[in-house]
Design a protein around this nucleic acid. Structure first.
Lengths: 322, 322
DNA sequence: TTGTAAGCGTTATCAA
DNA sequence: TTGATAACGCTTACAA
């Protein structure tokens, strides 16, 4: 309602002076400053953010794109928001549900100058489409990618997966089934590579079990239990795509009267809360640091600075499922 | 970069005509229209959203405020976002972590015209503070409140709690401990009222156990298990504040070798995924419909319409913990 | 059917 | 130390 001109008129000064007072920029005499602040307070005035954004060409608004709300995504978003707010950026969250059109909506906001940058955690469109939007503002991704326009806070899962496999081997497991997440993702590729290398090194036979991919939900774990039950020759350990799959698998098998790790060892991935709850052995993945890095990358591009990134580390969290 | 004037110049028309083409408003000849669209496409032009917001005084942006990201909040946010996006509104999520200053930040965005409205799920400031912002735009809440300026999608938990208690009674429990969420909330008050009424009706003694409030996390449930263990005279059933508390309690007791519901019955609240996972009996709370109602209320105020609200219902979901 | 021009509420340059 | 004023990019009477 009330704008900078009202303030100027009532304070008997120009809008330029009011602007100076508000932004603490340039010279203003103590007296006029006090007078202006008084009027501002009296009229309950706030600058119109849209006018500022229009004038400055910046909104201090960052978008986060994700297909869904898994525990690990939640943690990423929480940490990212925290650090962003600390730097006076606001977050707009886009849950696409896997709908490419919804993702485009978010990308179009970058194009329409409503967003200064975007963190694309899990994409719905092809990388080509997403990359084509980098000309409108910085975009950072979570999934791994080799692309000079699309920086990524991806962490090499090859090594992390090796750690998990070594743990299973040390525990005496020899018939290990490996269950993978998104079939298209490079994470899955790296995990498969780690598994092959591992199997070769220890002379393990790998092709006795079917290949499971795209298993990411509790329900997938429950279905896995049914599969396990139906086999004559069963794996003695299952390395799950994430903690949710491991949780579904473990609770289902326990319901059927099996003991974990007595009858089969179960290893999760990510170390989310459900792993703690169910005493699942898992791999800790430094989400918080990745989230911070994602923000730093965006911020560096926006301000042309070069804030140093966190060095990422992971480790095995041994509990009672292996 | 490129703006409406560039388009106008290159198409040999005025900005008004270009605007008409973009917004499909008013008369434009087929020929000029085609010409304009061609140039728009060639220059990869998009209208600047900030300029539009400034001009129109609206942003089609709605904020959601919450202190944290519990499973039930996630579900609310997901549904709210879905219906909002369907109506061409975008969502800005604010996770305050209980910090009043962060909440103010969001409220100030309403004041600064960056937000058209706000859904405040779990507040951090006093209701007085939040109410004082209703003069800048519509605010809807989730927690219960009697306030003409702050509509709420709250659902009376008195009845729902009665349903839970009746279930426990029917199952033969007589020494029921009731554990409550936020001590300040009206939800807690209603639950306490339901419990008193229930105890009186069945002539149960209520003051043998301490009064537990502010129990909302898995960890709270774990601590509850420790308490339960240390008692000589133990409750035979525990009605938990929500599914997370119930989950923490149940898994802790099971780890200690107790059987559920053999040694103690456990009842959750909300029917979130963890309840399904752990076979917890719980109360289904129609979050999706509440989320939709929250949006409808905001939309009605914004457009001066009167979209009908969902009628809310709840029910007991019996599983294996009682 | 199209164009002119006055806003919307700021910021920032240049004078004074 | 302060003020005029030209942008920023769009919408929308009102004219033509």
């Amino acid at each position: 309602m009330t704008n900078i001109q009202d303030i100027a008129r009532l304070a008997g000064v120009s809008t330029a002076t009011v602007s100076r007072v508000i932004n603490k920029r340039g010279y203003v005499s103590a007296l006029t400053k006090q007078k202006v602040l008084e009027i501002i307070k009296k009229l309950d005035y706030v600058p119109n953010a849209n006018a500022i954004s229009l004038k400055k060409g910046k909104t201090r608004q960052i978008g986060i794109i994700t297909t869904l709300f898994s525990p690990i995504i939640i943690q990423f978003v929480r940490t990212f928001s925290l650090i962003a707010e600390k730097n006076r950026f606001n977050i707009t969250l886009f849950i696409t549900n896997g709908d490419p059109a919804k993702e485009i909506l978010a990308l179009e906001m970058l194009r329409g100058k409503q967003l200064d940058g975007i963190a694309c955690l899990i994409r719905s469109n092809t990388w080509e489409v997403i990359e084509s939007y980098t000309r409108y503002g910085p975009i950072v991704t979570w999934q791994r990618l080799q692309n000079e326009h699309l920086p990524s806070v991806f962490m090499d899962q090859f090594h992390a997966y090796q750690v998990g496999l070594e743990h299973l081997y040390a525990k005496g497991y020899r018939k290990i089934l490996s269950v993978y997440p998104m079939s298209q993702g490079l994470n899955t590729k790296e995990r498969i590579r780690a598994y092959s290398e591992f199997a070769q090194r220890y002379h393990l036979i790998t092709d006795i079990f079917p290949h499971f991919e795209d298993k990411m939900l509790v329900q997938d774990g429950e279905e896995l239990a049914t599969w396990w039950l139906s086999q004559k020759y069963r794996p003695d350990a299952i390395f799950c795509a994430n903690d949710e799959v491991a949780a579904g698998l473990m609770t289902s098998l326990k319901r059927l009267g099996f003991s974990i790790p007595g009858d089969v060892g179960i290893l999760g991935f990510d170390n989310t809360e459900v792993a703690h709850l169910l005493d699942l052995t898992t791999i800790n993945y430094p989400i918080d640091q990745q989230a911070e890095n994602a923000f730093f990358i965006l911020q560096n591009k926006l301000n042309n600075t070069s804030h140093l990134l966190n060095t990422l580390t992971y480790k095995l969290v041994e509990r009672k499922s292996t």
